[in-house]
């Protein structure tokens, strides 16, 4: 049966809010029913366990930052993707991972990019045909780099995924600026492969790999 008085007394003890009158009341209840102490102990145990679980879950909040706001003050902040040189590669990857969560919210805005294609912003046919154009967009130049690289065999292609690293409300109030990473897979032929190992004196020494020992770690990406 619910006993609100006792519940409140127990709750105050758990939360460290019990004053002397509360303790007196609790002791009076316990002198008549020793089970009160057991109730207190169980309630304290539940509270400790629940608190640990809630704190563990809500700790995730510390990783969630606001999208940057475009104000004069915010404009002075360096771009998110200009990582400090002291940050490790792993830390960079974690940072990108954190922002990658914005992908869901930014999915619609990113839809224009399409999968594996680059928007043609004018003059692209002329460029592809090898014609010179006085005004070339960045997209045209990027496409030309991809095409030329593929012909030369130095570019395999562009990776299909984009990693969203920042979303900023546009300064003019219309829409959002989305910052994202694009990846290009390049290829280069070398005569030999070496792996660095540590010899018995603790020095780094290159060891040449023979072809049959060379695992095919990298597959040609689907582009």
């Amino acid at each position: 049966m619910a006993d609100t008085d006792l519940d409140i007394l127990v709750s105050r003890v758990i939360d460290g809010r019990a004053g002397s009158s509360d303790w007196s009341a609790l002791e009076a209840r316990a002198s008549a029913d020793a089970g009160v102490w057991k109730e207190l102990a169980l309630a304290q145990r539940d509270h400790a366990v629940l608190t640990a679980a809630v704190r563990r879950e809500t700790a995730k909040a510390e990783a969630v930052r606001l999208p940057r706001v475009a104000t004069p003050a915010a404009a002075e902040i360096p771009p998110t993707f200009a990582f400090p040189k002291t940050v490790s590669v792993a830390a960079r990857a974690r940072s990108v991972g954190t922002w990658a969560g914005w992908a869901a919210a930014a999915a619609m805005a990113l839809a224009f990019v399409g999968r594996g294609t680059v928007p043609m912003l004018g003059g692209s046919e002329g460029v592809r045909a090898g014609l010179t154009s006085q005004i070339e967009s960045a997209a045209d130049l990027f496409n030309r780099y991809l095409d030329t690289g593929k012909k030369a065999g130095t570019v395999v292609g562009e990776t299909p995924d984009r990693k969203v690293i920042d979303v900023v409300p546009a300064a003019d109030g219309h829409g959002y600026d989305i910052f994202y990473l694009r990846g290009v897979v390049e290829k280069q032929r070398v005569d030999n492969l070496y792996r660095f190992t540590t010899d018995e004196t603790g020095q780094q020494a290159p060891v040449q790999l023979v072809p049959e020992q060379t695992p095919r770690k990298f597959r040609k990406p689907a582009v």
Binding site: V54, E57, T58, K60, A61, E62, A63, V64, R65, L66, P67, V69, G101, W102, A104, A105, V167, P169
Partner: peptide, 29 residues
């Protein structure tokens, strides 16, 4: 932090608190 607790109190079990927090952050901005 407490917004995360509110989400915990109301979200479906399968939903991720971090994802929902990002949506709250976006709405807040």
């Amino acid at each position: 932090r407490w917004v995360a607790a509110i989400l915990l109190a109301h979200k479906p079990r399968w939903a991720d608190v971090e994802d929902l927090l990002q949506e709250v952050a976006m709405s807040m901005v």
